[in-house]
Design a protein around this nucleic acid. Sequence first.
DNA 1: TTGTAGGCGTTATCAC
DNA 2: GTGATAACGCCTACAA
Lengths: 343, 343
Amino acid sequence: MIKKITLKQVAEALDVSMMTVSRALNNNPNVDKRTKEKVIKKVHELGYSPNHIAKSLVQKKTRTIGVVVPEIAHSFFPEAIRGIEEVVYREGYQIMLTHSAENFEREAAAIETLVSKRVDGILISVAESDKDISVYTKVLKMGLQLVFFDRCVYNIGASCVSINDEESARIITKHLIEHKYKSIAHLSGPLTISISKARLNGYKKALQQNGIKFNTEMVVESGFHEEGGYKAMSQLLDFSPQKRPRAVVAVNDPSAFGAMRAIKERGLSIPKDVAIVGISDDIRAELMSIPLTTIKQPAYEEGKLAAKKLIAHIEKKKEKVEKIVVETQLIIRESCGCRMKSN
Amino acid sequence: MIKKITLKQVAEALDVSMMTVSRALNNNPNVDKRTKEKVIKKVHELGYSPNHIAKSLVQKKTRTIGVVVPEIAHSFFPEAIRGIEEVVYREGYQIMLTHSAENFEREAAAIETLVSKRVDGILISVAESDKDISVYTKVLKMGLQLVFFDRCVYNIGASCVSINDEESARIITKHLIEHKYKSIAHLSGPLTISISKARLNGYKKALQQNGIKFNTEMVVESGFHEEGGYKAMSQLLDFSPQKRPRAVVAVNDPSAFGAMRAIKERGLSIPKDVAIVGISDDIRAELMSIPLTTIKQPAYEEGKLAAKKLIAHIEKKKEKVEKIVVETQLIIRESCGCRMKSN
DNA sequence: TTGTAGGCGTTATCAC
DNA sequence: GTGATAACGCCTACAA
């Protein structure tokens, strides 16, 4: 850290007390207009920069929030972080960004560090690995504010911002059913976390509501990433042509991208041989050679809402814990068989 | 901030001094093994979490670095941030992420806040708006470490990690020239910042080395974003068909994407009517209906190198200030006219 | 309107 | 190996 001018030095240079300088700088009304001007002038002259560390120590408030994401660069998260930053900036907070890399231990360590750094609250989208929710309840018990976004943990007393996962999966599965596909598989997320279970349930519900029997073999766990989608799809394609699914609901777009690669590598065509849909509306979805039909998830909005809710929890002692659901939208492209490519 | 157990309370519960607890927790060798065990046990029992704010105050070190980017969600930056996070995590630092939104005032405010939060150093990619470099020199003068990445400011005594901008632009322009295009335009970045000037120079150099006369009208400032690329390209397309450029070097991929949209909207075809190339290798480049020929810029690597260099500056007092150049690679796709789409 | 005293939760330093 | 004390730079609370 830098050797710097302190309040005391400014005060001495002006021959006033530290408190006068402090008050002048914090817009305290009880300070003579001329002294205030003098102080501000001297502060610039000396290049004084207030030490927020000291301020935080006495005020027990850092105006910093911690953000924990399982992934930084792909699909949903950059947009969500942009939304968070937007709100946080306007409210005069800062973001401490950490990354769990989908790993539970790393996530727990990140949370612990954020607590030690005394952030005012934490925004988290949980990692996909096996987990013990006591990490989160412990944070809450310490009185730290916690808001989940996208991948939530429910019923532990924290607010959450996400889409309606079950309904989104149900709608897009139903869309596939309307194409008369009967044999529809699901590439699921890690079933330890609730978002995956909800999407699986939505898929099941759509089948059931349309009189299609649910078949366990048609659900393969792919996780949330491209590689997993590729592997899971390959597994399904190893079935005999009669047993092979005619359509696939991927848990999200990256998983769908991996699956699309697997399908193409077998020389099969999308959607003629296998139709596929995702959930996310990743930036790449519309650019694929067969544009992906998907559910648009408003990442930027989710980030903003989550940040707003967290700050409300921090600033108003009695802010209501709630589940905030953002609207999604079915985006119909070609991978479901709705329209074929024009050229 | 949370009401929490302090060192003092742990000490009292154990009937030892605060220093003993502090030493035990910081792996100071001068602590009896059994007292250390006792301390650790009690710390867990009480749920004590060390207050890094207090620690930072006395040690004048926060183990936090500030990151300032002009953009959070698109193209280069998410990957760069991922690289930064990777290094910072391994070295036991945290990231405070801020966003200038390409706006100079906002950037200056972000830096000021980071200084007040007493980060140990700052990693910055500068905003595109008009600027006064005194913001950066002031930071340096305070003794704070500063490392630029991607968009640098040179000769002010700060290290910098970037590609060789001039050479990259020269190479990709030369590639276009090898296609026998004579009338080649440049969509430039904001000419106030050095990366744009360097790329413009590379473009000029390629023309000159190949006996093509440089024509001022063929350079239009597009900025770094899609919208600017669209507008700048539209301007060039307003020229009469004879004067209109036959090929275009965009300052980066987003600008190229905007330009491609403009070209298509006029009913022109890429690369038949207008060939185009970019610099970045954005995730979308290969997915475009006409895949974009571009220069691959290793964002993740740049982030890692910049973070490593910053931490070296922070920890070794005499780390050399240097310009670190990362290798780029020409990625040939279809937009330059090299090969036509297979189907 | 201004100043003084005390403390926020740690660690550095020196003593035992 | 352990403890007492004085910072670190600021703000709260109270006094003048």
